[in-house]
Design a protein around this nucleic acid. Structure first.
Length: 593
RNA sequence: GCGCCCGUAGCUCAGUUGGAUAGAGCGUCUGCCUCCGGAGCAGAAGGCCGCAGGUUCAACUCCUGCCGGGCGCACCA
């Protein structure tokens, strides 16, 4: 939101210095200086090609005479502006519709954005790493939507391959016909147990093999996979699957069904939803025809052994095989195909993949290939890379059982939230206790992941991380619930009639209004940077501003009806902004907590 | 070997088109409930911003080198 006085300053300076259009940024004034906002003339100096003090002098002179300005003073090349209260509130919170609309890009800049995230394997349950992906993906999608884009969230489920066959084979051998229902276990966990069983047996056979043949000692585990009986059997099963063996396909359908039903529950809890879910079993053959076409056009080359590759030396990416010598497709071939499929089905202006940063190189290669193939949209593809989640003990490893399971984490957070709620509730236990606990738990979990920059490697300390105080989701929820509580207590007509903003003006009121007015700028920045952390920090700051205001200014007990009216309105605007911002992070709110 | 990312308070993290005296939370210490919800508020202590150069009126931010950590560089996905 831009202040009228700043808009006027823009045109004044543009005229004075003979510049074209000018963009004057007004930042919040740091607390140690007197002023509401500050204009940095160093930045303007570059736009206007004039000395900063010269610009500052002109700006101070102009602003001092402006009807909205109470005081303007210059320190170094910073012009600190204090507004008359009526103007400050008029240009910040008086027009709630404009405030919210400010988050949206102008119509001409709005795009259709396809975003793929989650992309789980159907051989084991999801852990904290997946939770970070899901959370980032859904929040990024929601932020883009809040910024005015049309968003198509999609999932690509990796439901075939050797890792799927591992759990299938283990189930075939040791399953005894049990089902998730018969043992009362969530489907993805049920299947995951067999994946672990397979691995245990493989390790056993591997050890036996190395004992029997000491010369294999230095070979990597992967290289000996087919040397073990169980590894061989899994590979045979994969071949059988690819040959549409009915028994294998039946088992595969059944077990994938169990896993996907389990994922559904986890997704539902997080609020994850997709417009379209792709299955790799349907897409893994895609891309081959594109390769053949590209081969004919000279984009790709064929080696003596029959393998097809592309030379990306000019982009510093080496060479990449895109079809094996036996003619089958590799991972990147599928990605070429699915990218084209998504492009054709949804016609997005832009595609985004939310995938861990260990695959950065893969996406550089993928995008380079698509560019060489000449697709005009190939320049509008983005890999939104994020860092991993580590534990104090190091990396999470499924094999070593050091993963933080998603469902368990959610359960623990919910139980803690319930306990906290009960402690605070005292005698009267809320009827919707479980629902509250669930919302608080998800707010805490998501905020924990969203408040840090996506590229950062997160350290998750189970002991320290499970908290609802300080910079947390529940803190923001608490501010929201307090405002809701006030609004409930106010009588029905409390928010009716015109607001006289000129009665406000203490620092806490001004700070809160100024903070609210930054909502749009922050959302647009988050959308441009594909970084939700600035929005998370903003909401924490906004909640903090409200808490200070709430402490310093009595709302319902304000000395005059006009003051009470204005403070209630300011609180209501804050509540709406909190709600909008939390919703843009896919975090739910509570009216009471 | 080459490439990318990271190194900021005891801990976890902000600070990214270079701008005022580098911030927040946790933890530690001190205050605040005759007052709208204490999941709160106010305050204190705590920093050679990995190290060394360079560019600039101005560097946590840009450039070079070094040290330390992570991740990549498959006819795996």
């Amino acid at each position: 939101m831009k202040f009228q006085a700043i808009k006027d300053l823009e045109s004044h300076l543009a005229t004075e210095f003979g510049a074209g259009s000018l963009d004057v940024a007004a930042d919040l004034c740091p607390p140690e200086f007197a002023g509401d906002i500050t204009v940095n003339c160093f930045v303007l100096a570059k736009q206007l090609r004039r000395a900063p003090p010269q610009i500052a002098a002109k700006a101070v002179a102009f602003l001092s005479g402006h009807a909205d300005v109470a005081a303007a003073e210059c320190l170094k090349a910073f012009v600190n502006v204090t507004f008359k209260p009526a103007a400050l509130f008029r240009d910040t919170v008086a027009d709630l519709g404009a405030l919210l609309e400010d988050a949206r890009f102008p119509a001409a800049q709005r795009q259709r954005v396809l975003i793929e995230y989650s992309a789980p394997n159907t051989n084991k349950p999801q852990h904290l790493g997946h939770v970070r992906n899901n959370t980032l993906g859904m929040a990024t999608a929601a932020v883009l939507r809040e910024a005015g884009h049309a968003v198509v969230p999609v999932n690509l489920i990796n439901d075939r391959g050797i890792h799927i066959c591992k759990s299938m084979l283990a189930y075939q051998r040791w399953g005894n016909g049990e089902t998730p229902e018969s043992v009362g276990k969530k489907g993805d966990h049920f299947v995951g147990d067999y994946y672990v069983k397979f691995d245990a047996e493989f390790r056993k056979q591997l050890a036996a093999l190395r004992t029997a043949q000491p010369e294999l000692k230095d070979k990597a585990d992967e290289d000996l996979f087919l040397e073990t009986e169980i590894g061989r059997a899994a590979q045979d099963m994969l071949v059988a699957w690819e040959n549409h063996d009915p028994t294998v396909h039946n088992l595969w359908q059944t077990m994938n069904g169990w896993v996907l039903a389990g994922f559904e529950q986890t997704y539902a809890r997080m609020g994850v939803r997709f417009d379209k879910v792709y299955l790799e079993s349907n897409t893994y053959q895609l891309g081959k025809d594109i390769i053949r076409d590209g081969l004919a056009r000279g984009v790709f080359q064929k080696r003596d052994d029959g393998a097809v590759f592309i030379d990306l030396e000019d982009k510093g990416l080496g060479t990449k095989v895109v079809l094996r010598s036996d003619g089958t497709s590799v991972y990147i071939t599928q990605d070429i195909g699915t990218t084209l499929l998504k492009q054709n089905e949804h016609q997005p202006d832009r595609q985004i993949w939310v995938v861990g940063d260990e695959q950065k190189h893969h996406f550089q290669v993928l995008f380079a290939i698509l560019q060489k193939l000449g697709y005009p949209w190939a320049s509008e593809l983005t890999h939104m890379a994020y860092g991993m989640v580590n534990l104090p003990s190091g990396r999470m490893k499924s094999r070593e059982g050091t993963v933080v399971d998603a469902d368990n984490l959610f359960d623990e957070m919910r139980d803690l939230a319930r306990q906290e709620t009960l402690t605070r509730a005292g005698a009267d236990v809320p009827a919707d206790l479980d629902e509250r606990a669930q919302v608080i738990a998800m707010a805490a979990t998501k905020f924990m992941l969203l408040k840090v920059n996506p590229r950062t490697t997160i350290l998750f300390d189970p002991q320290a991380s499970v908290t609802f105080e300080g910079d947390t989701g529940p803190y923001v929820l608490y501010a929201y619930a307090r405002i809701s509580s006030m609004l409930r207590k106010a009588d029905a007509g409390a928010l009716a009639g015109a607001v006289d903003w000129s009665v406000l003006g203490v620092p806490e009121e001004k700070d809160l209004a100024l903070r609210c007015s930054q909502y749009g700028t922050v959302v647009r920045k988050a959308a441009v940077d594909l970084d939700t952390s600035c929005l998370s920090s903003y909401l924490l700051d906004l909640a903090k501003s409200f808490s200070r205001f709430y402490r310093a200014c009595s709302v319902l007990g304000a000395p005059t009806p006009e003051l009470r009216r204005a403070r209630l309105e300011l609180s209501a605007v804050t509540r709406t902004v909190l709600k909008a911002g939390l919703s843009a992070l896919t975090v739910g709110t509570l009216e009471s907590m």
